[in-house]
Design a protein around this nucleic acid. Structure first.
Lengths: 331, 331
DNA sequence: TACGTCGATTGGATCGATCAAACCAGGTCC
DNA sequence: GGACCTGGTTTGATCGATCCAATCGACGTA
C-alpha cells in the first residue's frame, strides 16, 4: 500500500506501454491474447484500479449519477424513496456507476444544483423523483440535452422524456377486484383532492374496477394525506346510510386513519370491514394492513438501464410503466 | 454554455495568469485587492466553477464522503437513517463536500468497498453507522489511518476513534422521569434481550430513573424488536398482579405493539396507561404516540465537523454524546 | 550604484488517465 | 520490388487544476 498503482506502474511490471494496459481495460479485443494475459496478471498482482478522476479529466465522463434527496416528509410513505435509494445504488454499482446526493428546496434551486454539479463534479446524469405538472426541472434538463430519467410520469404531457413509473391505477384496480371477489359491493375510495396526478390515477383504477363489476355507486372522500384525514373520511363515509364495507385508500397513512376509525367504532378489521392501503410501508406491515406494493427494485433497475442507453448516445429509450402487486395481510 | 469555463479562460478574460486565478480561489490573501476584484468579476461573468476532478488529480483530495446505505430494515426505525442521510448531505454541502453512496452486505464486503472507493474514486473519508462490538470496519480503517467518524459509540472500548452518538440512557431517563412526575409508580420497560449495546444503554436510563425516584421494583420484558414482540411483552406484564400503568420502550415498534395490546384490552392510552417509544418515527407521530427523539441534524453536523477537523490533519477531534429530547403527544 | 528584501505574479512540470497518430513487423497484390 | 494493408503496439499531446521555483518591480539600505 506504499504507493498507488497506476497505468504506468502496471505497464512497467508487464513490460508493455501504458496505452496497452489501457487497451486491456477498455478495449481488450485489440490486444493479443498473450499480452492481455500478462497485463491482467500484473493488474491483479499490483491491485490496480483505474483512477476515475484522471479518466474523467480526459473522457468527460464521471460515471456519477446525481440524485436529490428529499427532506423526510411527515408521512410514513417516505420509506418508499428510501428503498428506491438503496436499489438505485445497488443497481448502479453493478455497472460501475455511483450515486451522489444533493439537496434542494424547490424546483428552481434544484436546477441551480444541477448546473453546479455538472460544472464542478461533472455528473453524467440525474434521476428525478416527485415529478409534477409543469415541471421546471425536466424542461431545464431537456433544453440543455442532459441525460436524465424520472421516477414518475411527465404528467403535463407537454414534456417528452424518458421515465419510469408504477401503474397506480392498476394497483387500486387489483385492490378493488380483490375486494369484489371477496363479495364486497359497497367499496369506498379514500383519496386526495382532485388535481394531484398520482391521486387521480389511483382513483381511476378503483372506479374502473367498480364499473367492471357493474357497481354504479361511487362512495368516496377526498382529504389531505395523513392519518387524521383518513380517520375523518372514514367517519363521514360510515355515517352515511348503507355504510361501505371496504375501503381502498390512496396511501397507507389514509388507510391507517380508516383502520383507527373502524376500531373506535368497534368494527373488526377483516370480519366487519376490509381496508387496503397503498405503498406497502413498514408501518402497514407491522400493523397487519393489506397494501399495494410498488416494485421499487425494478423501478430502480429500469432507471439505470435507461440512463445507460442514453449515456451510450442511443436515441431515447422506451419509458416503462411497471405493475404493482397486492400484498394481502388481514384476511 | 458552448464551452466550459476553465482557469485558463478566466485568466485570459482577466488578463492575468491561471495561477493568479487559482490563488484568488484558494489563497485570496496573496493576491492584491485590485487584481482579486478583477478576477472575481471574470469568474462571475464566465460562470466559472473549479473542476473537482482536475483538482483532485493534483491534490489527491476529492471532497467526497462515502456512506454505506443499509438495506431498508423491516422495522419502522429505518427512517432515522433516512433523516440522517438528508442532514448529512445538507451539512456536507455547506462545506463543499459531497456524499457518495455505496452498498455492502456485511462488514467484510464493506471494507472491500472502502478499498475500492479509495482507489478508484479517491473518497476522502467515511461515515459509518451501526457500530457494534468487535467491529471489523473500524479496525480496518484505523490500521490504514483513513479518516472516518461513526454514528454510534465504539462499543467494544478496545477501539479508539472519533464518534458521535445519542445518549440513549438519557432518553429513557427523560421518559421515566416524566412518567414519575405524572404520578406513575409502576413503570415497566419493554426492551431487547441483553447483549445489544444500544438496548442495554436504553434500559440503564430507565433503571436509573426508577432508582432516583425510590422505586425498587423492576417490571420488564425483553423481546425481539417488532410490533409482535411489544404486544406479547405487554400481555405478559399486564397479566401479572399489580400491572404496570406506564411503559418505557426501547423502540417505536415495541411501543406500537404495547399500544395495540392495551387497546385490545380496552385500556385507553393516556387515561389508563402511558406509553413512550423511542426514535420518534413518523409512525409514532401519525399514531399520536409519545417518543424519545434523536437530534439527527445535530448528529450529522457533528459528524461533518469532526471529519473536517481530521481532514485538516489536526489530531483526533473530541467525540460527542448528544442528548435526545422527549416528544410528548398523548396526554 | 549595487544589492538584498519583499510582495505580487508568472511559467513549467505534474497528477493519471485517454486520444490520435505514428510506428513496425509480416503478409498480399500487381 | 514497391505500394498497400493490417493487427499489435508505442509515443506525444491533452484534459484542468495545483505545486514549486523563478521572475519582476519597487523600495530601502550600505
Amino acid at each position: 500500500m506504499t504507493q498507488r498503482a497506476t497505468l504506468n506502474s502496471v505497464a512497467e511490471a508487464a513490460a508493455v506501454s501504458r496505452q496497452t494496459v489501457s487497451n486491456v481495460i477498455n478495449s481488450p479485443e485489440v490486444v493479443s491474447p498473450e499480452t492481455r494475459e500478462r497485463v491482467l496478471e500484473a493488474i491483479q498482482r499490483l491491485g490496480y484500479r483505474p483512477h476515475t478522476a484522471a479518466r474523467q479529466l480526459r473522457t468527460t465522463r464521471s460515471q456519477i449519477i446525481g440524485l436529490r434527496i428529499a427532506p423526510v416528509g411527515n408521512g410514513v410513505s417516505g420509506v418508499v424513496l428510501d428503498q428506491f435509494l438503496h436499489s438505485l445504488t445497488a443497481t448502479a454499482e453493478e455497472y460501475e456507476h455511483r450515486i451522489m446526493l444533493f439537496t434542494a428546496t424547490d424546483d428552481e434551486s434544484e436546477t441551480r444544483a444541477y448546473a453546479d454539479l455538472i460544472a464542478s463534479v461533472g455528473v453524467d446524469a440525474f434521476v428525478l423523483t416527485h415529478t409534477h405538472h409543469d415541471d421546471l426541472r425536466t424542461r431545464w434538463l431537456r433544453e440543455r440535452e442532459l441525460p436524465f430519467v424520472t421516477f414518475g410520469r411527465p404528467w403535463g404531457a407537454e414534456q417528452e422524456h424518458p421515465w419510469v413509473d408504477v401503474d397506480g391505477a392498476r394497483g387500486t384496480r387489483l385492490a378493488t377486484d380483490h375486494l369484489v371477489r371477496q363479495g364486497h359491493r359497497r367499496i369506498a375510495f379514500v383519496g386526495w383532492p382532485t388535481g394531484s396526478e398520482t391521486g387521480d390515477d389511483r382513483r381511476a383504477g378503483w372506479s374502473a374496477g367498480l364499473a367492471e363489476a357493474g357497481i354504479p355507486e361511487r362512495r368516496e372522500a377526498a382529504v389531505f394525506d395523513g392519518v387524521e384525514g383518513g380517520r375523518s373520511a372514514a367517519a363521514r363515509l360510515l355515517d352515511e346510510p348503507l355504510a361501505p364495507t371496504a375501503f381502498v385508500c390512496a396511501s397507507d397513512s389514509l388507510a391507517l386513519g380508516v383502520v383507527g376509525e373502524l376500531r373506535d367504532r368497534g368494527l373488526r378489521l377483516g370480519a366487519d370491514a376490509s381496508v387496503i392501503g397503498f405503498d406497502d410501508t413498514p408501518t402497514a406491515a407491522v400493523l397487519g394492513l393489506s397494501s399495494v406494493a410498488q416494485p421499487i427494485a425494478e423501478v430502480a433497475a429500469e432507471c439505470v438501464r435507461q440512463l445507460r442507453v442514453m449515456l451510450r448516445g442511443e436515441p431515447g429509450p422506451a419509458s416503462a410503466l411497471l405493475p404493482p402487486r397486492l400484498v394481502l395481510r388481514t384476511t
